[in-house]
């Protein structure tokens, strides 16, 4: 039985595809979400870095004579450009607290993400690369971790161990590595079965070498995407813990804590919760946009 050879028919996408580097550049710069996300993150990062220069007042400086000045857009007679975002119940400048608060959010988000990233990636690579029993054990650890309620355990542990910025960071880092492990495990599994990894094994590369020079670079895209998700997750959790009074302690200007402090006064001074909440929203939105953007740009076929 004769078949007509499936001759090299160029598919539509082959015809259309320009070189991959220029295509990548086009994809990155053409992706508004990614650009907006990275742009806003850079701005927030710069604000955190330059806080001492940007903040007009000491964020801890209390002055009861000037308490609860509304922000300038409120139209109130008390509003003044000296305190553009107003002052809180203890007379602290809200703009300065907001600026310094970005330091706390970024520090916690980034550090907790690093800790959980190291734990999760290690577990994930081990499970994905070695498979079999190692995989079973790692899966078991992941399932166990997932069954522990994060907020509750974090609150309980912080209440028992005592709270400081670094304890919060460590508790969060130790709790939210699960997504790293799950994603890294499955991407390692995929990469591991590719020909070039088999080739590296065949020429006798050591396991460590294969993991670090063959597998890690190829799961980087997925890792970056999870890192953004977990950084946002850590920032939200810190804000929630601080909101409940068991995260960062007063008088530090954590955004979650600012919302907590403003809660009792929100009926008449809603900006007290509106402003720090909006700042949290913008920061998390920026991180998520960047993560979604990286995913779209590096693997458009995986977009969902």
């Amino acid at each position: 039985m004769g078949m007509i050879g499936k001759a090299g028919v160029p598919t539509a996408s082959e015809i259309l595809e320009p070189s991959s580097a220029s295509l990548m550049r086009k994809r990155i710069f053409g992706h508004y979400g990614l650009m907006i996300g990275i742009g806003s993150l850079l701005v927030i990062f710069a604000i955190a870095l330059l806080a001492p220069m940007l903040a007009p007042f000491d964020p801890l400086d209390q002055e009861l004579s000037r308490k609860l000045i509304p922000p300038i857009w409120s139209g109130s007679a008390k509003a003044t450009w000296v305190y553009p975002l107003g002052t809180d119940g203890l007379g602290r400048d809200y703009l300065s607290r907001l600026i310094y608060g970005s330091q706390i959010s970024l520090l916690i988000g980034f550090s907790a993400m690093l800790i959980s990233g190291v734990i999760g990636t290690t577990l994930g690579v081990l499970a994905g690369y070695f498979g079999g029993r190692v995989d079973m054990v790692v899966n078991f650890i992941i399932t166990t971790r997932l069954s522990m309620p994060v907020v509750l355990v974090a609150l309980a542990v912080v209440s028992l161990v005592g709270n400081s910025l670094w304890i919060v960071i460590w508790v969060l880092g130790l709790l939210i590595w699960d997504r790293f492990a799950v994603v890294v495990r499955s991407s390692t599994l995929q990469v591991r079965n590719l020909d070039y990894v088999a080739a590296a094994q065949a020429i006798g590369c050591s396991k460590m070498r294969i993991i670090f020079s063959e597998i890690m670079p190829n799961i980087m895209n997925n890792l970056i995407v999870v890192a953004t998700v977990e950084m946002a997750h850590a920032i939200i959790l810190e804000a929630a813990l601080s909101f409940l009074g068991l995260g960062v302690q007063p008088p530090a200007p954590s955004w979650g804590l600012m919302i907590s402090e403003g809660k009792g006064l929100m009926f008449f001074h809603p900006w007290l919760i509106g402003i720090p909440g909006a700042a949290l929203f913008v920061l998390i939105l920026a991180i998520n946009l960047m993560g979604d953007g990286v995913r779209d740009v590096t693997a458009p076929e995986n977009r969902n």
Binding site: A232, A239, G256, I259, F281, I284, L285, N288, D292
Partner: peptide, 15 residues
């Protein structure tokens, strides 16, 4: 979806 994911629930509750 993007907006929902960026809203802290305790803040959304207060709003």
């Amino acid at each position: 979806a993007v907006i929902g994911q960026a809203l802290p629930s305790f803040w959304f509750a207060l709003i």
